[in-house]
Amino acid sequence: MVAFIVRRMWQALLVIIVMSMLVFYGVFVIGNPIDVLISPDATQEIRQQIITQYGLDLPIWQQYLHFMNALIHGDLGRSFVYNMPVVELIASRFPATMELATMAILLASAIGIPLGIYAGYRPNGWPSKAIMAASILGFSVPTFWIGLMMIMVFAVELGVLPAGGRGEAVSIFGIPWSFPTATGLQHLILPAANLSLFKMSMMIRLAASGTREIMLTDTIKFARAAGIDEFTILRRHVLRLISIPLVTVFGLELGSTIAFAVVTETIFSWPGLGKLIIDSITSLDRPVMIAYLMMVSLLFITINLAVDLAYAVLDPRMRQGDGK
């Protein structure tokens, strides 16, 4: 097991380094941030001074080495636009996105998995057909449109929920969270529901197809022959057996939700990372872009590692034979 984790760490480091090169080069190609940074009527002298100050006159590989050197010392640079350390900037926005994404994924699992198991258990009943049809809608109708409809219905017509923004936040361990407060939860519910729809459809379909397949196996026949009731069979046998593909999707989706909740965050003016990255791209805020993308790759690697470890917990067959 230790050898497995060590190997994965090596791989992660390699991925991060390659990723940093690609990102650095990619962002370099997009354009010169200097045009955004200083007003067009600045003198050539001031312009030159600022270019030198940021090291933008150096060849790209030197800039990259400078960047990596700073990175090793824990410094990701300062935002050109906000003029504050990038780490602080991301840290200030991260809880909001984290909260939104986690809520969305939990909603998707808590509703999607039971619905999916039901649909797989009774595939021919009309409720199952309705669930499966709805899940196709959830896949295919664009998120932004559903988001707008939700605002129309719940915020404009019924007026029961706020249309956007984040509610009151309380500080837990120095990090501002909004979900424990009433207004915070009110603000959270619509964007989280909106963000969870696609994932919920995915969970439903995965759980349904897994359940259908497993219900036909001898394991279930044997359990039934032992007189075990259907609910216990679903809860103890089926849920455990379908959990591996579900955990995979859960992990992948958690990553992508945190990283790319942009659309939902924009519609509901949620002050999260998505808005930050869009702003930094339009203003060519190079340090923010690089730091953000590196953070995202680190996030994916961490989640994937966690998913792999979860496999070992869920499936005893994978526990043996590790560490070879």
Binding site: T217, D218, T219, K221, F222, A223, R224, A225, A226, G227, I228, T232, R236, H237, R240, L241, L314, D315, P316, R317
Partner: peptide, 29 residues
């Protein structure tokens, strides 16, 4: 089923649930 009539199948690899311990499965029955 299980109390008065029970059944044993052909392939024990397929009938036992691979992700539960023997005790968990026996206790369930």
């Amino acid at each position: 089923r299980g109390r008065e009539i029970s059944m044993v199948f052909q392939d024990p690899m397929m009938t036992l649930n691979p992700v539960l311990t023997v005790f968990e499965q026996m206790a369930m029955a």
